[in-house]
Design a protein around this nucleic acid. Structure first.
Lengths: 204, 204
DNA sequence: GGCAGAATGTAAACGATGTTAACACTTCAG
DNA sequence: CTGAAGTGTTAACATCGTTTACATTCTGCC
């Protein structure tokens, strides 16, 4: 299922690069960062290892692309979760529900796919948080814009709000993904942090 | 400097295990997780690779011990920073200053030693956050106990307070260590998150 | 249509890695 | 003193990332 079929000819895979990134993502999902390797990816897509060097300069570069792919996947997951939120008659409640949904999606992703989450946020040079996770950043800021427009969040908080929300939720997600929190405590922990974030943004 | 001298005899290093953990820590500091290897550690401490297998079952086990060592190092760094805070006549201000000091130390450690920070919080099974980073956890809770005792933090917040503070600061530290925040924005970002945490704990 | 060159694959090889097996020396309890 | 447990070495294996040399296919130009 993972291996793509070769075209009729022996040569020219056709979509080697994207196939490699996808195969890399799946290897990470199965066995973490450790499972990602040039040779393993090559085997998965039915190609010899040096072929990958036509598309990636090194394993590190492949890792960077896999990491980027996972971040995009995360962003789409958050967006889909937000779009599933039922519209409420109370528009403020609706906005809050959507905000919670994207935060919950972020944490759920880390909880259910800790290996992917780990690789998604691996050190990568010279990228600000916005570029780093474009879609997720954009979704978060939409929510905050709505909060301000509805008078739920004071304007002077608008600048620091995304940073505070992001670091809280990211920290929570990281700790859960690392299994640094006992499973029994996760539920309580999540609620506490999410409530805290919401309070910090809305109050006063 | 890193390599320990062997005893007079050719055999029996004497403190191979602790020497290996220290050497591992230093390799991580220099080159990240990637630089940690059985053979490299063995070379550093002047021993052949298989010798390490008398003390560690695998590279992964060595990594776990190095990770634990770094967490202890972090805890001591936080404690030392907190103890350097000047006593103030205003006891509440003194407590706040100490609280900020331990948070700042946490983030400083991540900022100045991103490689160590990364390895410190690598996935490790079945450890709650308390056991995971005992000393830091204890220091944080001392501060919070003092806050409550002085009436600065309401009692009903006492349970969720460490979780909220930890995840915010940990998320901030992680994002900074991963260089997901542009260097120019780090200062502002840090201040915003630390202020947010302080507000969340003290107000009302 | 055919052909040069770019693009993209393979095969073979190199050094470094984690790990194991077989062996040697040291230490120490009896 | 002796044997067993502890701790180190050497040699070897499979696998890894990566490079070099070569083969095939695609593409644009005459």
């Amino acid at each position: 299922m993972l291996t793509l079929q070769r075209k009729g000819s022996d040569y020219h895979h056709g979509a080697l690069k994207s196939a490699a990134i996808l195969a890399g993502r799946n290897l990470v999902e199965g066995g973490g960062l450790q499972a990602l390797g040039i040779r393993r990816v090559a085997t998965q897509i039915g190609v010899t290892a040096p072929a990958l060097y036509r598309h990636f300069a090194s394993l590190e570069e492949l890792l960077a692309e896999v990491s980027c792919y996972i971040r995009a996947e995360m962003g789409e997951f958050m967006m889909s979760r937000r779009n599933q939120v039922k519209k409420s008659r109370d528009i403020k409640k609706y906005e809050i529900d959507k905000f919670r949904a994207i935060g919950d999606a972020y944490v759920d992703f880390a909880d259910k796919h800790p290996q992917l989450f780990e690789v998604a946020f691996i050190h990568h040079q010279n990228q600000s948080i916005g570029e780093y996770n474009e879609l997720a950043w954009q979704i978060l800021n939409e929510s905050l814009d709505n909060f301000v427009a509805l008078g739920m969040t004071p304007k002077q908080k608008r600048e620091t709000a995304p940073l505070l929300a992001w670091s809280s939720v990211h920290g929570l997600a990281t700790l859960i993904a690392n299994r640094a929190i006992a499973p029994a405590e996760v539920k309580f922990f999540r609620a506490a942090v999410m409530d805290g974030v919401q309070d910090a943004l809305l109050k006063k």
